[in-house]
Design a protein around this nucleic acid. Structure first.
Lengths: 165, 165
DNA sequence: CCTAGAGGGTTGAAGCGTCAACCTTTGGCT
DNA sequence: AGCCAAAGGTTGACGCTTCAACCCTCTAGG
């Protein structure tokens, strides 16, 4: 490959390794809490939460996938399970029969309402309450900068290795 | 456990959602790059990298699991695959016959050396080079604070790059 | 029309992580 | 010595994500 890798400085390396550790441990911790308290994965919760905030508590699958930073197949499987558990329903869209609309049920709504407080408390315990107000602002800016590279303006799409024209 | 939910402020919520997105997308991006360029998962690479930095390129499984922020069963499965591919070997420890020592092979060493430059370049592209020097310091402090909650045992590691530059 | 192709979702197989059960070794206690 | 609990790892089953293949619908061209 290239001759000069431009290795990381000590500071950069340390920050990177700590971010790596957070990225590894944080999702697991959130999954654990939600699994224990609500029998939901973190992603399950995200799906229900996003629906609960949407107009008519309804979103298209593709939009829901984008707003939860997931691929469509993943959402499709998750939605199938959540539907089987009675938390949401899927229907074909009237205007575009290709599209599927996911709608939160009453039971799904109650699930979110019942789950949110403890989940937020956990988010506070693990992250927000450990940071100063300035650090919250800094984190916001840093995460935004990184997202710029992760999702180049492209609400998560593109699984093509080479250009598809 | 349910006195007052203490909801997040707008600022806190935004920072949190962005961190959530990063935690979701960053591991996937790194996995993709390593899978494509070296046929390794991000975690595979971490294991090989940690071994490459260790004395005699050897570590106990439990220590290796801790330093890669993973559970022992996970590491055990990964080590079995990496051993099958010839990148490391596992032997019983002399002093404590319960323990298993993982040792990087010559081929494993070569794999790390060959893989590191492009991986570092990707880390730069996605994270480090998108941040100002001040933000790198901020990120370090923020990640450390969060790790304090995620890792009660505080087994924070020292770092040592494979090569200098 | 009717056909090609793109957009939107779903499905099934394969791979990885988690959990619980298990085996072996070590160390403490009598 | 003898026993029992804990420490260190491994294994197998199960669940979730990914990838590729597929189906249906909409749109554009001829």
């Amino acid at each position: 490959m290239t001759d000069d890798p431009r290795w990381l400085s000590a500071r950069e390396l340390q920050a990177w390794m700590r971010l790596e550790a957070v990225a590894e441990l944080l999702p697991a911790a959130l999954d654990h809490q939600l699994q224990r308290d609500a029998d939901l994965s973190h992603y399950d919760y995200l799906v229900l939460a996003k629906l609960s905030e949407a107009p008519d508590r309804t979103l298209r699958m593709s939009g829901l996938a984008a707003s939860t930073n997931a691929t469509l197949p993943r959402l499709s499987h998750v939605a199938a399970r959540l539907e089987a558990r009675g938390y949401l329903t899927r229907t074909r869209a009237e205007d575009d029969r290709r599209a599927t609309l996911a709608t939160l049920t009453e039971e799904g709504w109650r699930k979110v309402v019942a789950t949110a407080p403890t989940h937020v408390a956990e988010v506070r315990r693990l992250v927000v309450d450990r940071l100063s107000p300035e650090q919250v602002v800094q984190l916001d800016a840093i995460a935004l900068a990184v997202l710029g590279a992760l999702d180049p303006e492209n609400r998560l799409e593109a699984q093509n290795p080479v250009a598809g024209a």
